[in-house]
Design a protein around this nucleic acid. Structure first.
Length: 271
DNA sequence: AAATTCTCCTGAAGGC
DNA sequence: TGCCTTCAGGAGAATT
């Protein structure tokens, strides 16, 4: 399931191949995604040039002449660069055909989405209320501390809340909290400012390491160059229930469900 | 307001 | 070519 590093890996993979090119044709084979693909999509954007490929949270933003395509990969979506004559596979929903290449959107589980807007992307309803980027200057320990006052939830749910900070999915939430030595179930109101400052640094390190390495995934993810984005990044705790803590503390990694999601942690190192 | 639950969907995994 | 059940997972929507 693509997390922010995977989405950014896709962005970097496709951008050089489509930036500056015009969309010759749009083929929508299956409109059924999380929200229906706009019926007038092809008519709206055919002939327009891609000026930039950027990212906000896990949304990919393709800036065209008169608006922006907002693409989300859900948990099983992928974008691949193929030849226009590459045989169409199951769950290939959309082609954006350019001169010499074709951007193909595939999403077996249909949790992804494609929107077209003439608004500034920051004004779009999917994006306007999102919290700060985890790698941006607005994401600070002071921000987390301030936002956590008077709240009672578990810190893992807190940092996965897109109104608090975007782009931290289930895998990297567990990894960041392990690195920071904070128990995922700890109440947000019972974490000090210095610990939030440490957590921010750990989130940044985990995400930027993953971006540098090309993104992590468990399955389904395919990079913009058509190669699997999968790489054996050393996840310290995620999926490692029962294994020894990488901190050599002698304890073993535990799993429990927090906020309906599997969470992995060391019961000794994380408090 | 904040917290919790529900929802979409397919394919993988596991039991038999 | 085995069939059936269970379940994960992003994140907005609905509910409490």
């Amino acid at each position: 399931m693509p997390e922010l590093p995977e989405v950014d890996t896709v962005r970097r993979g496709i951008a050089p191949h489509i930036t500056g090119k015009s969309i010759d044709r749009v083929i929508v084979r299956n409109r059924h995604l999380r929200w229906p693909v706009p019926a007038r999509l092809a008519r709206s954007i055919t002939g327009q040039t891609v000026h930039a490929v950027t990212r906000r949270a896990k949304y990919l933003l393709l800036q065209l002449d008169t608006g922006t395509l907002i693409v989300h990969l859900g948990m099983s979506g992928s974008l691949r660069l193929v030849n226009a004559d590459t045989p169409v596979g199951k769950h290939d929903h959309i082609d954006w055909v350019f001169a010499g290449t074709c951007l193909r959107y595939n999403d077996p589980r249909r949790f992804g989405s494609v929107h077209w807007t003439r608004q500034a992307p920051d004004q779009h309803w999917l994006i306007k209320d999102l919290g700060p980027e985890p790698l941006g200057d607005d994401f600070t320990g002071a921000w987390l501390y301030q936002r956590s006052r008077g709240r009672r939830g578990a810190v893992k749910n807190f940092i996965m809340n897109s109104h608090v900070v975007v782009g931290i999915g289930n895998i990297y939430a567990s990894e960041s909290l392990f690195m920071a030595g904070i128990h995922p179930n700890r109440a947000v109101g019972r974490i000090s400012l210095p610990r939030y400052e440490l957590l921010v640094e750990c989130v940044r390190e985990v995400l930027s390491d993953a971006i540098a390495a090309g993104g992590t995934t468990l399955r389904d993810f395919v990079g913009g160059d058509g190669k699997p984005g999968y790489f054996s990044i050393s996840l310290n705790v995620y999926g490692r229930e029962g294994e020894p803590c990488p901190g050599y503390c002698g304890a073993s990694i535990r799993q429990r469900v927090i906020g309906q999601r599997a969470s992995f942690f060391c019961p000794k190192c994380q408090r």
